[in-house]
């Protein structure tokens, strides 16, 4: 059972305090978008063995959403960061690279 530190309230929360929200940094496609874009926004999800960016909500806690970078194979947590961002912070990306030199990088 995972522990993730909520960047909003600072609690090291165990998984039962949290609610998962799937892949992070999805771009919303609304009216006027192509079928392909909408399809990918709605249904296409990354499922890597390795570095993954996820949405979590501290549901039994401060109630805030946050994002986490995690290795799906080892469950290593590289870091958590606020949801109000469109891509992982540069220092986090650098840290991930140091831990996973083979990682191809974010997008």
């Amino acid at each position: 059972m995972l522990i993730l530190e909520c960047p909003c309230c600072g609690v090291k929360a165990e998984e039962t305090e949290l609610a998962p929200g799937g892949e992070a940094h999805l771009k919303r496609f609304g009216p006027g978008s192509s079928d392909a874009d909408f399809d990918s926004y709605m249904f296409a999800r990354a499922n890597p063995k390795g570095v993954h960016f996820e949405r979590w909500r501290h549901a039994n806690g401060c109630g805030k959403w946050f994002l986490a970078a995690r290795c799906t194979a080892t469950l290593e947590v590289f870091g958590t960061y606020p949801a109000q961002t469109t891509e992982p912070p540069a220092e986090l990306q650098a840290y991930i690279k140091s831990r996973r030199p083979e990682w191809e990088g974010y997008k």
């Binding site: 309230c9 609690v11 305090e17 039994n60 806690g61």
Partner: peptide, 10 residues
């Protein structure tokens, strides 16, 4: 102040 889970409720 600690907000958490009390058994099955917040």
């Amino acid at each position: 102040v600690r907000r958490s889970r009390i058994a099955q409720v917040a």
